[in-house]
Computed example of a mutant assay.
Amino acid sequence: MPAPSSLTELRAALSSPGVIPAEVDALLAAIAQPPEGEEALRARADFLLSLMSLPGDASVLTGSAGTTVRTAAVEALLELGYPYALEVPPDALERARRERGSRRKKGRGRTINVPTSALVVTVITVQLQLLLLWMFGFVSFSQVNLLTLPALLGLFGPPALAVIGARKNSPGVQLLGAVGLGLQGLFWLMTVLLATGMGRHTPQVWLALPWYVPLVAGFLMRPRKQPDAPGTSTSAPQDVSP
């Protein structure tokens, strides 16, 4: 844990014109560390209270994780427990709650990381493959056979995983679904290759088999790195006060 003088210097740096993002992150990391001893707890509580009322925009400087200095100070003071948590000013506590609530709403708005084109191609892929499975007798709409359930699971499983993974912001699940779509494309490609090697009288419809559509869908449904949300930069402080 940094020495008290170090904490004081970091606090002073926030009010200087040349404050840099690294100094904001350093202060937030320092106050997140628990102090030692009863006297240290009192000194830390006073220090955290001072961070909530810094002059100018210093208290609303934002760290790289998207948390303002004021909110981080509120949370650190609450972590000290009784009786120090009772010293949190009501207005600072309310602002911290609003800030956290706003960040959660923004996070939910960014969970769907799938372009519209990817969803359209995926829907087309499922429809085409369902038609082909029906044409080749793997799926019957009039009666259920032993191949129906595995064929349907293989058809609907990958696109469902890709979409669910994107909605739940789970890149691993989304990647699994995208790989499954790619395997579907390879399956139909192997079908084309086997069909073209069966003889000279191979029907032309085999050559027109859209084996490439699942491959395109898998490529479009792959996880993408999300851009930083507005307001997470330390260089542009945001005030969460009303």
Score class of each variant (00 low, 15 high):
6 S>G: 09
16 S>D: 13
26 A>L: 11
25 D>K: 09
145 N>W: 09
96 A>S: 14
129 Q>N: 11
118 A>I: 13
218 G>W: 06
16 S>L: 13
203 P>C: 08
5 S>H: 12
162 A>F: 11
180 G>L: 04
225 K>G: 05
115 P>K: 11
148 T>P: 00
82 Y>C: 04
102 S>H: 11
7 L>A: 09
207 L>K: 11
96 A>R: 02
131 L>P: 00
155 L>D: 01
106 K>M: 08
25 D>L: 09
58 A>H: 08
207 L>M: 11
139 V>S: 01
229 A>H: 04
147 L>V: 01
165 G>Q: 06
224 R>Y: 07
64 S>Q: 10
24 V>W: 11
70 R>T: 01
223 P>I: 08
13 A>W: 08
168 K>V: 00
159 P>E: 00
87 E>S: 13
127 Q>E: 10
78 L>P: 00
70 R>Y: 00
111 T>L: 04
9 E>S: 13
165 G>E: 04
231 G>S: 13
76 A>S: 15
177 G>S: 06
119 L>G: 01
121 V>W: 04
33 Q>S: 15
121 V>A: 11
50 S>W: 08
234 T>L: 09
199 G>D: 12
146 L>F: 03
148 T>D: 09
88 V>L: 09
164 I>M: 00
76 A>F: 09
237 P>G: 09
68 T>L: 05
79 E>F: 08
18 G>Q: 15
225 K>S: 11
10 L>I: 06
62 T>I: 15
62 T>K: 04
61 L>E: 01
62 T>W: 05
101 G>Q: 09
83 P>T: 14
91 D>L: 10
174 Q>Y: 08
10 L>Q: 06
91 D>T: 14
199 G>P: 03
53 S>A: 15
152 L>K: 01
75 E>I: 05
137 G>A: 00
11 R>N: 07
100 R>G: 00
233 S>L: 04
130 L>E: 06
100 R>F: 00
108 R>V: 01
177 G>R: 02
229 A>G: 13
150 P>I: 03
197 G>N: 13
98 R>N: 06
145 N>D: 13
98 R>V: 04
64 S>P: 02
45 A>K: 12
158 P>D: 10
67 T>S: 09
201 H>L: 13
170 S>W: 05
188 W>T: 01
166 A>Q: 08
68 T>C: 07
106 K>R: 11
123 V>K: 02
145 N>R: 05
202 T>L: 06
8 T>L: 10
221 M>N: 12
69 V>R: 06
169 N>T: 00
57 D>M: 13
192 V>F: 07
242 P>F: 10
75 E>M: 02
4 P>W: 02
175 L>T: 07
153 L>I: 15
13 A>P: 02
61 L>R: 15
122 T>D: 03
126 V>C: 03
119 L>S: 04
186 L>N: 01
174 Q>W: 06
224 R>G: 14
12 A>L: 08
46 D>R: 14
36 E>W: 10
9 E>C: 00
32 A>P: 06
176 L>D: 10
198 M>I: 10
212 Y>I: 14
162 A>E: 13
227 P>I: 01
76 A>Y: 08
111 T>N: 07
85 A>V: 15
134 W>E: 03
226 Q>A: 12
120 V>M: 14
240 V>L: 08
111 T>A: 12
213 V>Q: 03
124 I>C: 10
155 L>Y: 01
120 V>I: 15
132 L>D: 01
4 P>G: 10
